[in-house]
Nucleic acid binder design. Structure first.
Length: 801
RNA sequence: GCGGGUAUGGCGGAAUUGGCAGACGCGUUAGAUUCAGGUUCUAAUGGUCGCAAGGCUGUGCAGGUUCAAGUCCUGUUACCCGCACCA
């Protein structure tokens, strides 16, 4: 009997489709399980072998949950707005909608050929007006609550894509997508106040089950630091406020630095004697791209302000003020107190400009280097703080200054507000109208969706405006409030918008009155298990958690967090151990593998390839082992015997394998689950036959991994019904125990014998049996027993001299 | 620089959390089947010494704790990922 995988897989995919086997039910009385994988961007390249790793893993979980009696929601959709499609459309003069449609068709047929148990009735597409209507709706709610606002700001401008990028999309000073240099440009942008949620985004990580490294990167990205805001005086009369995490070192502050963009520079223009040099420096740093700034990071630059000096509030000493681009306007107050004795950057700067360095915490040598590792030190040269620990000093000085109205405790976050505008065509239009009299006026909700207009050219304009800006018919409208001539917003939303709430739409994808019904959301949310790539652990996860919390606050959803559990899979690398890419020529196409080995083999191999959470190189020869395993499984039909109970010889092994596979799936250890089934198969082969009861269990265990083959075998064995209609097998803990167990006997830690004993025997019996072994006696001969260690069920160690 | 991770045979990787290192698979070798290639089956397979019984050695490196360490502690090296002048 040949294993004709192509015929088998086609046959069962058609049956599943026709019978709608994997549709989630709307019967809300059943226990639910919501398994989710990140929906793909339907690129022109088609599916990558990395996609099935994640999809198969949760497919296994979903299929197992169905067999366990859950109402399972395992949906799929398309995150289809985005630049590559738009760029392709521009280049080839094809409408992006058409490009998207074609790519989706290709992706969908590829996913179907993998036998993934998605509920295709709930397929969604972020570019569908029925979908983005609700993306726009959420934006309007954010706007109404003051969380969306417009701001003139210096933004990251990609010279290649001619588009504004979020900080997160700038990698090493170049555009994440196209690699062109990124420079600063001042533009009026829509912003979302994610910073308002910073603390809750940290705190609520305690409510969810994410793998640790994901939580850690979320916390690091938000970057909370506690310290104090301290008001320094100036000879100009203004107070200059700084943020510091080390108020204890205030006596060591020998100068101040403000950012080149700091507003006080203009304010003090009349007082500053070297304004030419200051302006030259300002221009120089504005011209620098982020890339140049970081390149030059080692060498500190700056200009001293002649004519204005700062006054240290702890001792009223006058200190110089510099401008330097190592101080960022976008963090804290844009001004710092510099403590060269205990901060590396300040130390470098002080050395270069010949500024005094004062030691205020004992323990280092501040002439040699900044002493920064000083949290446990003792204060010196610090007036009222002398002799205190750093901890005590921090508290005391802030209290002392606060009494005088010069300081207050303060928490800062690295997280910045989210730049939400893109000057592009292929994105959700922002539903706002600008009126000269009324300002920014939201579109009435009844007018949603605000559809993308048809345009002839998708090219961004040279001045950086969106292609939509050229569509005067579309742009020029009447103000909804006062009726005066007004203009539509021509920017579109970033790609992250549609993916920030898509998991909600799956709950009720065809709803025309709301993003999803209250009942559906209450039943399905939160997502029980969400798997995706490590590359999305900061941005997508943070953005979607932020939106979800906002929707929670306005009563749309009933859970504070969207995902109860989050895991991440490792990348699949090329055969040479490098990341797969066209330029490296090491790309494996899943279509080829399915054609040559079948979907079941591909699924099994991707799960067997290694630790699910780690990167693993592709191996064309290892895949054969998985094919061989499935062929051997198929061959078991030839030795199938009657028998409705496990045979005595295999009973223990079956119970153990059920336990192992059940547990391993939950722990993401698919590789060892497969290894256990391989071992079981080896035992069955040695035994020579398999009976009905055993075959049923084996097919059920293997079904989530190799669904087509197991359905086919179930049918050929005439077991009745389909595997998907059965119950997940159970095991008996008692039956997993062997009557006889092997015990290792060591003498002085070296293995001397292995003995078989009854599982229930006592420690004394074990010890006696161990000592009776000839090789043990030989090793003990003439020696004095010092110590005897007995580990029940495992080993005996006799220490002798 | 900061944060996170990894290091085990020729290769991918196991190891019930301190108790038999190398499960399972690939590859390799030998034998059987075959006209042959492929397939399949049987056996062997960390290194090393030995005819053998058996011994020695072995989880990046150096120490330590322990009857017992891949696993715990101290130090160290290499590589990967993320962030990067965040005061």
């Amino acid at each position: 009997m040949k294993y004709d995988f192509a015929a088998i897989e086609k046959k069962w995919q058609d049956i599943w489709d026709a019978r709608n086997v994997f549709a989630a039910s709307d019967d809300y009385s059943k226990p639910k399980y919501y398994a989710l994988v990140e929906f793909p961007y339907p690129s022109g390249q088609g599916l990558h072998v990395g996609h099935p790793r994640s999809y198969t893993a949760l497919d296994i979980v979903a299929r197992k949950r169905r067999l366990q009696g859950y109402n399972v929601l395992y949906p799929m959709g398309w995150d289809a707005f985005g630049l590559p499609t738009e760029n392709y459309a521009i280049k080839n003069h094809i409408h992006p909608e058409k490009v998207t449609h074609d790519n989706v068709q290709r992706f969908k047929s590829q996913l179907k050929s993998l036998g993934l148990s998605f509920d295709w009735n709930r397929e969604i597409n972020t570019t569908d007006p029925d979908y983005y209507r609700w993306t726009q709706w959420i934006f309007l709610q954010l706007f109404k609550k003051g969380l969306a606002y417009k701001k003139e700001m210096s933004v990251n401008w990609c010279t290649g894509c001619k588009v504004v990028l979020a900080n997160e999309e700038v990698v090493n000073g170049v555009c994440e997508r196209c690699g062109s240099p990124v420079v600063h440009k001042v533009k009026s942008q829509w912003m979302l106040k994610i910073t308002e949620y910073a603390q809750r985004l940290i705190d609520d990580l305690d409510l969810v089950d994410y793998i640790d490294r994901v939580k850690v990167s979320q916390r690091n990205w938000i970057g909370r630091s506690t310290g104090a805001q301290v008001d320094f005086g100036t000879t100009a009369g203004d107070k200059l406020t700084v943020f510091t995490t080390r108020p204890d070192t205030l006596y060591g502050a020998t100068y101040m630095v403000i950012s080149p963009e700091h507003p006080y520079i203009e304010k003090w223009a009349g007082l500053i004697q070297n304004m030419d040099a200051v302006r030259a420096y300002q221009e120089e740093s504005a011209r620098k791209s982020d890339f140049e700034r970081t390149e030059l990071a080692k060498d500190k630059t700056g200009v001293k302000l002649e004519g204005v000096r700062g006054i240290n509030p702890v001792n009223d000493e006058e200190i110089p003020i510099f401008i330097s681009d190592y101080v960022l306007m976008s963090y804290g107050t844009g001004a710092i107190m510099a403590v060269p004795g205990h901060d590396t950057r300040d130390w470098d700067f002080a050395k270069k400009f010949g500024l005094p360095i004062i030691e205020v915490v004992k323990g280092g040598n501040v002439e040699e280097a900044a002493f920064t590792d000083c949290e446990t030190g003792v204060m010196v040269n610090s007036g009222i703080l002398d002799g205190l620990s750093v901890e005590e000093a921090k508290k005391k000085i802030v209290e002392w200054l606060a009494e005088r109205g010069k300081a207050e405790p303060k928490v800062n976050y690295k997280l910045r507000d989210w730049v939400f505008s893109r000057q592009r065509y292929w994105g959700e239009p922002i539903p706002i109208i600008h009126c000269d009299h009324c300002g920014y006026v939201p579109l009435d909700e009844s007018e949603l969706p605000l559809r993308l207009p048809e345009v002839d050219s998708y090219e961004p304009t040279d001045n950086g405006d969106s292609p939509l800006a050229a569509m005067t018919d579309w742009v020029n409208v009447k103000c909804p409030k006062c009726g005066a001539p007004a203009k539509r917003e021509t920017d579109t939303m970033p790609q992250w918008a549609g993916s920030s709430w898509y998991f909600l739409r799956y709950c009720d994808p065809h709803n025309q009155d709301a993003l999803a019904s209250k009942e559906a959301l209450n039943y399905w949310m939160p997502v029980d298990w969400y798997n995706g790539g490590m590359e999305h652990t900061t941005l997508h996860l943070l953005y979607s958690r932020f939106w979800h919390k906002f929707l929670y606050d306005i009563g749309v959803v009933n859970t504070p967090e969207p995902y109860a559990k989050r895991t991440s899979h490792g990348m699949i690398l090329g055969e040479n151990g490098e990341k797969m890419s066209k330029s490296r020529g090491n790309v494996v196409n899943p279509d080829d593998i399915i054609r040559e080995y079948g979907a079941d083999t591909l699924r099994l191999y991707e799960m067997f390839i290694g630790d699910f959470e780690k990167a693993a190189p592709w191996s064309q020869s290892s895949i054969k082992g998985c094919k061989r395993f499935l062929e051997r499984i198929y061959g078991l039909l030839e030795v199938l015997q009657p028998g409705e109970a496990y045979s005595e010889a295999l009973e223990g092994s079956f119970h153990k394998t059920v336990r192992k596979v059940s547990g391993d799936i939950e722990a993401l250890k698919f590789n060892t689950a497969i290894a256990a089934m391989m071992s079981l198969l080896n035992e069955i082969s040695d035994h020579g036959s398999i009976n009905h009861a055993e075959m049923k269990t084996l097919l059920l265990l293997l079904n989530p991994f190799a669904p087509h083959l197991t359905e086919e075998m179930w049918e050929q064995a005439k077991f009745g019904g389909m595997v998907t209609e059965q119950k997940w097998p159970s095991y008996d803990e008692e039956k997993c125990k062997d009557a006889q167990i092997e015990i290792v006997v060591q003498v002085c830690g070296k293995i001397k014998a292995r003995i078989m004993v009854d599982a229930g025997c006592s420690e004394q019996e074990l010890l006696d049996a161990a000592k009776a072994a000839p090789s043990v006696q030989a090793a003990l001969n003439g020696k004095q027993i010092v110590k005897e260690i007995v580990v029940k069920g495992k080993l005996v160690n006799i220490v002798a001299k």
